[in-house]
Amino acid sequence: MKGTKLFKDFFESEKTGGLTLISCTILSLVFANSTFGADYHNFFLTQFAGHSLEHWINDGLMTVFFLLIGLELEREIYQGELSNIKDALLPIFGALGGMLLPAGVFLIFNFGTTTQSGAGIPMATDIAFALGILSLLGNRVPTSLKIFLTALAVIDDLGAILIIAIFYTKSLLWTNLFIALGIFALLLAFNRLKIRNLIPYLIGGIAMWYFMLHSGVHATITGVLLAFAIPFGNGDEKSTSYILQHFLHKPVAFIIIPIFTLANTAIVFSGNMGETLTKNYSLGIALGLLVGKPLGIFLFSFLAVKFGVCKLPNDLNWKSVFGVGLLGGIGFTMSIFITLLAFEEEITINNSKLVILLSSFIAGLLGFFALKMVLKKEEVNEN
């Protein structure tokens, strides 16, 4: 696996964004538990055009986040680390294990209960946070390890998108859905006709978002569909896809995701913490992220290499793969997002967010120190 300028730019953007999220999370928790915590919470419930600010953030702004994910996924498929199937198979299998085992762990505690719908929560990896932690290790991290984690998280995001579309659609209004898909088909036709101007795609994307919002399918899926309708061309700096992706990186990393974080991590610490952490859904989330994720990523990657499906890059070993698996347990943004779709009771949502934050923090620490030890030993051995 060879690093490219685009990948390095992406890595730099994501790692800085991850450090920004840490600051926003701390700020949100401080505000929520201060004397003006109620005002802070009520601010995001302010109504605007028939919906709360929180709703506009989660269903509107996050669509732009999903648009960027779609553009990055498209580039990975056409030109990046997923374009060569042999290189892509290792992170594909790792991501598959990193989704199936955490969901299985969650269902062990919650199957047949009212909270079983939360099985998708521990399946997600927050790419910004994970790369942010990895970046703290500096130059000792081999490029192929950065690429493995990045590809793993991108595939993980795709899995989360499919899960949201399939399992968190509660009721369908077929007319609106068909109109949204009809607009998508029209945008694909624009692509085939080699229309490169962004304006028709953005106007069509807004219209598609409106009908998708009122179809029952979560509106953020529109972002991914729009990404694959926008012309990729040869992927150079003049292509429509590249221009939009380059433009969106900083606004998403430093405006949209921080706003989402401020709106959705305002957790008030109250009640019996021990009781909260021992609820079935809490155990499912925590063990799914801290145990299911690293075991799933490691086990599926190991079996794929063992059976000759793919190869482990020369500068990687299984200890570093397991360390990356620990970082995969940082759920955060996507886990919180799925929580909002999976549960309806406010106390369950609040408790789940708390468990996600604690588990992600622990996963980050474990991953950081595990990789620090492994990579340090590798440096000593090389010397």
Rank of each mutant, 00 (worst) to 15 (best):
G50T: 02
H55Y: 14
Y40S: 00
S34D: 09
A49P: 01
L61E: 12
A32V: 09
Q47P: 02
A38C: 05
L68D: 09
F36T: 12
S34R: 06
Y40G: 03
G60Q: 10
H51G: 03
L67H: 06
E54A: 11
L71W: 02
A38M: 10
F44C: 04
A32G: 09
H41D: 00
F43L: 14
Y40M: 02
T35C: 01
F48S: 10
T35E: 10
Q47M: 12
G50R: 06
L71V: 01
F65Q: 05
F44I: 07
H41Q: 03
N33K: 00
H41N: 00
F65E: 14
L45S: 13
W56T: 08
H55E: 15
Y40L: 00
A38G: 07
G70W: 03
H55R: 11
H55P: 04
F65P: 08
L71Q: 02
L53I: 08
T35W: 06
G60D: 11
S52L: 08
S34I: 06
G37N: 06
E54V: 09
F44Q: 06
T63G: 02
E72G: 03
D59S: 11
Q47S: 13
D39S: 14
H41I: 01
G60R: 09
A49L: 10
M62Y: 13
D39A: 05
V64S: 03
F43T: 03
G60V: 09
G60P: 04
T35K: 11
H51N: 13
E72D: 10
L53A: 07
S52W: 13
M62G: 12
M62S: 10
L45M: 12
D39R: 03
F65W: 13
G37S: 03
L53R: 08
D59M: 07
L61A: 15
G70K: 02
E72T: 04
T35F: 13
T63M: 12
D39K: 04
E72S: 08
A32H: 11
T46Y: 11
G60K: 08
Y40H: 01
F65K: 07
